[in-house]
């Protein structure tokens, strides 16, 4: 039973890939930096280079934080749907196996937010 209803009932997924004009959604969260109250949602073309997300988009989203400039990207730990994951910065989102509405998080060892409060 997908829903309690008086008769056969099928819902419409409002967020189908084709509704996003050629983009797919990618969610990105920065661990231990909850000054950004929630992970971000982005619409990106699947052919976009993953490195471009890091270099061209994320600074605008996370750059306000004093820890941002201190990140050593070679040491960053990545997770996809909570599992350890190794992205290739030179490849596209699609080539990295990222599909519509995937969620990735990154952890920056040694950086734990404002006064170590994970803010």
């Amino acid at each position: 039973m997908g829903v309690a209803a008086i008769k056969e009932y099928v819902g419409e997924n409002k967020d189908r890939l084709e509704n996003f004009h050629g983009n797919q959604l990618l969610y990105v969260g920065w661990e231990d930096h909850l000054m950004f109250c929630a992970p971000f949602a982005f619409p990106f073309p699947p052919a976009m280079r993953f490195g471009d997300v890091i270099e061209k988009v994320l600074p605008g989203a996370f750059g306000y934080h004093p820890d941002w400039a201190k990140i050593d990207w070679s040491k960053v730990e990545w997770f996809k749907s909570g599992q350890p994951w190794a992205p290739n910065f030179a490849k596209s989102l699609a080539e990295n196996g990222l599909r519509h509405k995937d969620v990735v998080r990154f952890r920056t060892p040694g950086l734990t937010g404002i006064k170590g409060s994970c803010s």
Partner: peptide
Amino acid sequence: YYRPRLEHWREEAKKGNRFYNKTLPML
């Protein structure tokens, strides 16, 4: 957990750098 971020925001606002998050959140 919460005082440090509020105080940081207050300090930044005093410097004319009030935090406005303009990237949309995951819901």
